[in-house]
Amino acid sequence: MTDFAERRRMMVDTQVRPSDVTKYPIIEALLAVAREDFVPDAQREAAYADRNMDLGAGRALIEVRTLSKMLDALDIQRNELVLDVGCGLGYSTAVAAQMAQMVIGVEEDEEMSGEAQSQLAEAGADNAIVHVGPLTEGAAEHGPYDVILVQGGVEVLPDQLLAQLKDGGRIAVIFMTGALGEVKVGYKQGDQISWRFEFNAGAPVMPGFEQAAAFAL
């Protein structure tokens, strides 16, 4: 019988704390959410591995070091509304729901979104819902949002996602250039976003967030 609770503690002690993530709400959330319940059944044993996990359908569960450092930079507060773009099977939504007032996960894969919604219910995350629709379109009807998290690599960020951010809100994005990635946090003031580099990390580019191929004659 696998002791997943012990693996969760190990994950926090070996992947999260050494990355200088020590805020109590983040640590508490990562210890509270059973990561093994938010991965494909065949990958439960690998749920706590220190890498991005392929979920299929062009989606990935980003490594917990990257997620925790994004959460650290965003500093989600208890009274805030969060949009979690590309939530996959719901892990990041469940973690954010431990810290926020409400989290809207967005997933375009219907099978994945259905699984995410049922796992969130099972985990008792009653302040989280999954919106089914194109990742690039977010979920404008539930916004605007204090915080937006993007759960995968981005080459081009759609303007309509930025439009769903409240004035004074924050967005965390893994910008990919080839195989190299940089996590940046954007701060919205009026119609302007000012970006600040946070750390290097990589993730597969999500469907719809690719740079359009240039045509060469």
Rank of each mutant, 00 (worst) to 15 (best):
E108S: 13
A140T: 03
L81T: 05
E155Q: 10
I62G: 03
G143P: 00
E115I: 15
L157Q: 07
D84N: 11
M102L: 09
P134N: 07
A125N: 13
A97Y: 07
D84F: 06
D75M: 07
E137K: 15
Q119L: 13
D146C: 04
E137T: 11
Q101G: 09
E107I: 06
Q151A: 08
A100P: 03
E110P: 09
L165N: 04
L74C: 04
D167S: 15
E110V: 14
A57H: 04
T93M: 08
G138Q: 12
V173L: 06
G153S: 04
G133N: 12
D72H: 15
L157S: 10
E137P: 00
E63Q: 14
N127D: 10
L120G: 09
A172Q: 09
N79G: 01
G143E: 00
I129V: 15
A139M: 09
V103E: 03
Q98C: 15
V106H: 11
P134L: 13
D72K: 13
Q101V: 00
S92T: 15
Q117D: 14
I129T: 15
N127A: 11
S68N: 05
V130R: 08
T93I: 09
A73E: 10
V147K: 15
V156T: 15
T136C: 03
V147W: 07
Q160G: 00
G153V: 04
V132M: 14
L81Q: 02
S118A: 06
Q164L: 00
M102G: 01
A123C: 00
A125V: 02
R65K: 15
R78N: 11
G58T: 14
G152C: 06
R78P: 11
L81I: 01
S113Q: 13
M70A: 11
E80G: 02
G88N: 13
H131P: 00
L165G: 02
G88I: 10
C87D: 04
R59E: 05
D146S: 12
G114A: 11
L135Q: 13
N79Y: 04
V103G: 07
E80F: 01
H131D: 06
H131S: 14
A140N: 02
Q101L: 12
A123T: 00
G114K: 07
A123S: 01
T136D: 05
T136A: 15
P158C: 09
L89F: 06
V95M: 05
H142C: 05
G114M: 05
G58A: 13
A121M: 10
R170H: 15
A123W: 00
Y145F: 15
A116I: 12
G168T: 13
G58F: 09
V103Y: 05
V147M: 08
G143R: 01
T93K: 10
V132G: 08
L89I: 03
P144G: 02
K69Y: 02
E63F: 01
M112K: 11
L67C: 01
G152A: 06
S113W: 03
L83C: 10
R170S: 14
D159M: 05
C87K: 01
D72I: 03
V130F: 07
T66G: 06
